[in-house]
Design a protein around this nucleic acid. Structure first.
Lengths: 218, 218
DNA sequence: GTCTATAGCGAGATAGAC
DNA sequence: GTCTATCTCGCTATAGAC
């Protein structure tokens, strides 16, 4: 009986704690991703979370600590899936391209500010890429090499036209990532609303792969 | 004789004034473009210009004033040339693509941080695109329509495969702009130095057009 | 755990001497 | 025109009551 009450109290207490802590992280993720570190005010995060600003300091030491936590999560979100496809063995170049394109566009459509956030924060502080890249255990050189080997193989087999692996890779990434990075410009310049933009991205999931394959196939 | 001295004085005085004013704008252009408005400290601009910080306020009222001046210039730099090619009449789609690609990559290679700067500032404050777009007298709808008409024409003439004009346009812009936007990431991930990166961009000036044309031609 | 009050600092902007 | 000194304010962070 008492135990029951006690457990409820503990449970409630823990739940409340998690709720606030969680609210902070969620809010900080939103605000940091939209505005970047420099333009973010801790007050904006508190407001977004609907809590008192000093609670940020109770749960996390300071602004930088919260940012680091969030950057690590978002960094993984941005790179991890792509790297898994990259590593995949026994798969044709064309299929690899299809998977990469579909994954990147799907992921970035769900998180429209993510690419711009990662890119600008790294541009302001290139060390971030080294540091969090290590944490993620990613080895760009190996991956790059394996992709270039695959491209070289398909050229030799006369399946695709000659092209440098790194140029092809840049093309794939460009076609997937840029539309999301430049979304605020595209919406205005092309005079489309959110829904239409969503449809355009949905269309790109398949069209971009075919565009690339047409460009390189013999 | 006196006149001579006087003229020299005036000349010197004007030259000194212009020198400082010019130094400030140049420094502010560098710093703002690299770091963005929010992360820029007026002290950083002063240091870059090699002048006392209070001189910024003597020549320009405040930080925002300097930023507005610079943003307008850089905005034009980013959009103007492309829009001129866009407007060009009596030119085939393929040639238009070649010109756009060459121009964009050349311009952005000269100003590697420009695209990221324009995109992030507009993302933080979309009004900037409307406001400075008007000043530049650009009419996206007309240009978009003319490009889409041209694409529709080439499809009808059986020169290219069916593709939406806006998707093709996005592809062109992506392939040109993204590599520069993501340059800090690409340098590390592909393990290339500045010179190599420059060569890669030089190569892209022609290869990207051919990539696109191969992708769409029948 | 959450709040109010406040310390402390950094950055933008101004006053005034030279 | 350029400098030093200073004001002011906004933002981060902490102390301490509840």
């Amino acid at each position: 009986m008492f135990t029951h009450l006690f457990n409820n109290c503990v449970k409630f207490s823990i739940m409340a704690e998690l709720a606030t802590e969680e609210k902070i992280l969620e809010a900080a993720t939103k605000v940091f991703t939209r505005r970047g570190f420099a333009a973010t005010r801790t007050q904006d995060i508190a407001k977004e979370a609907g809590i008192n600003r000093t609670l940020l300091h109770y749960y996390y030491r300071d602004k930088q600590t919260i940012f680091n936590l969030i950057f690590e999560t978002r960094f993984k979100e941005f790179f991890k899936g792509l790297f898994l496809i990259f590593e995949a063995d026994n798969i044709s170049l064309f299929d690899k391209i299809r998977r990469m394109v579909d994954h990147e566009i799907s992921m970035l459509t769900k998180h429209p500010d993510l690419a711009r956030f990662i890119i600008t924060e790294i541009a302001h502080n290139p060390e971030l890429l080294i540091e969090y890249g290590k944490k993620l255990g990613m080895n760009p050189r190996v991956l790059k090499q394996s992709f270039e080997d695959l491209v070289a193989h398909e050229i030799k087999e006369n399946i695709i036209k000659p092209i440098e692996g790194r140029q092809l890779l840049m093309n794939i990434m460009s076609l997937c990532i840029y539309p999301l990075v430049a979304k605020p410009i595209i919406l205005t310049m092309m005079n489309v609303d959110e829904a239409t933009f969503g449809n355009m991205m949905e269309q790109r999931k398949t069209e971009v792969s075919e565009f690339i394959i047409n460009a390189i196939k013999k």
